[in-house]
Amino acid sequence: MALSGRKVLITGGSAGIGAATARALTSQGAHVAVLARDGERLRAIARETGARPIPADLRDPHAVPRAVEAAGDELGGLDALVNNAGSFRLGAVRDGRYADWQDMVELNILGLLTASQAAVPFLTRSGCGQLINISSMSGRQEPSAESGVYAGTKHAVRAISDGLRHELHGCGIRVTVLSPGMVLTNRGEYISDPQLREATARWHEEQALDPADVAAQVCYVLAAPPDVHLVEIALISARQTP
């Protein structure tokens, strides 16, 4: 399928994978809306790409349906939702902070659920609806001591996506999980422990994927023929230790 004219909403669209996806899709003629809570960065991406900015906090269950509705109105419908917004926090449970756990659960799981629920009517009407959920290699592997909670949220994304694939099959909506390894985005800047934050930044600099490489896979999924249902794409940098 050609991407030109496709109507796509991207959550977490103000930076990282989301911003790279907005650049990739708009360069190929797609009509894009970007949703994020950082209004300043969101407007900057909108000016750069021509995407419609939709400011909203995915942690607010009342704001999300209104934001998805606004995106659908701005674009004249939705053909795809890219659930990219997420929170990456590392740390052992015994030293963990409730606020970090809450942020990951609210963004990585509940934000994905509320955005998906609000988008389903639009995607059903599209006739070629697609739902792309950005998970992680952490959701496919045994976690380390420091990544257990984050990995747990990404395992949940895979399980939810599998359930949605069954649920939405009769609506003609395809559900794909995209599971990248380390991606050079915020370099772990929100990690509380300074030593772990420094080590994560170093690992990202040495081994992480460029966000544009992940965005290219989003474009690949969206361009799949209507009769091809891609279940999952997992990828890591060739520099990342398997």
Rank of each mutant, 00 (worst) to 15 (best):
L75Y: 12
R125Q: 15
K154F: 05
G139S: 13
W101C: 02
A44F: 08
L90M: 11
E146H: 11
A85M: 09
F88R: 07
V32W: 07
R47L: 10
L123H: 04
A30Y: 00
A118Q: 03
S147Y: 08
S135A: 15
Q130G: 03
I109G: 06
L110V: 14
L113Q: 13
G72V: 00
P143D: 01
D57S: 01
A85H: 05
L110F: 14
V149T: 10
G91T: 08
E146F: 10
A118L: 08
L35E: 12
G86I: 08
H155M: 15
Y98N: 00
T124S: 14
R125H: 15
L113D: 10
A51L: 06
E142K: 12
A46Q: 00
A85D: 05
A36E: 01
A99V: 01
D57C: 05
A71G: 03
R125L: 10
Y98V: 06
D100N: 00
E74A: 15
Y150G: 04
T114V: 14
L78A: 10
R140F: 12
F88Q: 00
A80V: 09
A159D: 13
G77N: 09
V82G: 01
L42E: 04
T114Y: 08
A92Y: 13
G148R: 03
F88G: 05
E48W: 00
H62K: 13
E142N: 15
A36Q: 03
T153W: 02
F88V: 09
D38P: 07
A46S: 12
V149K: 02
G127P: 08
G86N: 08
D100M: 01
R47T: 15
A145P: 11
I109P: 06
A99N: 00
R52N: 12
V93K: 04
D73Y: 14
A85F: 04
N133L: 07
E74H: 13
N133Y: 03
A67K: 03
V149Y: 02
R97W: 02
A92I: 14
S147M: 07
P121K: 09
P55M: 02
L113H: 15
A70L: 05
E48Q: 10
P65H: 08
N108W: 01
G139E: 11
A33D: 14
I134D: 06
G139L: 12
A71Y: 03
D38E: 09
E106S: 15
Q102K: 07
D60T: 06
N84H: 09
Q102A: 07
H31Y: 13
D73I: 10
I132R: 01
S87R: 13
G77L: 11
T124P: 10
K154A: 06
A46K: 06
G91I: 07
S136M: 05
G152E: 03
E48M: 03
R89I: 05
G111K: 10
